[in-house]
């Protein structure tokens, strides 16, 4: 069983990422469950989606605390919040983007300035990447999710060709080139 937790801020494109991962797992012959979040929490709140696949039947679509093999975090603070869901020895891929939550904007709370250190102290294997810059280099900031997926792909034991095939069937044709570019930047990016 492989359990991947995807966390971010509503509106960042985490849903598409989880669907792509789901399609990838199916193409490899696994049973898959993907759990999504719709409705109120999509409005700029913390969002969590779950992807689980296995060569045996997958029952629950959810990942419990200490149950994720990998956390794919679209935002630093959300990565910190999700750490308790990571298995001991698991890996966190984190986008270094900072999005201020409302309590920080109103001054009721402070955004921690050492999020990457906090993650490292938790014992996780942390792979940080500036996926936003990669997306901008690819030509559109909205491809940040695919750039981050490229980073994830570079750390997983799945052939690159499989990833590219999945992107080609899950992303609309008119957006494919720019997203493939973002994926490549994530896959080969130095960080």
């Amino acid at each position: 069983m492989t359990s991947i937790l995807i966390v971010g801020v509503g509106g960042q494109g985490t849903l598409l990422t989880s669907r792509i991962l789901g399609s990838l797992a199916i193409s490899m012959g696994y049973d898959v469950k993907v759990s999504e979040v719709h409705g109120m929490s999509q409005r700029g709140g913390s969002v969590t989606t779950y992807v689980r696949y296995s060569d045996e039947r997958v029952y629950s679509p959810l990942i419990d605390e200490a149950g994720a093999d990998i956390i794919l975090a679209f935002e630093k603070l959300e990565a910190c919040r999700a750490v308790k869901y990571l298995k001991i020895g698991g890996a966190i891929i984190v986008n270094t983007q900072q999005i201020n939550p409302m309590p920080v904007i109103t001054g009721a709370a402070v955004y921690p300035d050492n999020t990457l250190d906090l993650l490292a102290e938790s014992g996780a294997a942390v792979y940080a990447a500036d996926a936003l810059s990669m997306a901008v280099s690819a030509g559109n900031a909205k491809t940040v999710n695919i750039a981050l997926l490229g980073v994830l792909a570079s750390h997983m034991d799945i052939e690159k060709e499989k990833w590219l095939e999945t992107l080609k069937i899950t992303i609309p044709a008119r957006l494919l080139d720019i997203n493939l570019k973002a994926f490549e930047l994530g896959y080969g990016g130095s960080y």
Partner: peptide, 19 residues
């Protein structure tokens, strides 16, 4: 007993907001 990974305490929350 539940398996536990230490979380990071004291983080600012992120409630949903108007866009």
């Amino acid at each position: 007993p539940p398996e536990k990974t230490a979380g990071i305490p004291g983080l600012p929350g992120r409630p949903p907001v108007m866009c």
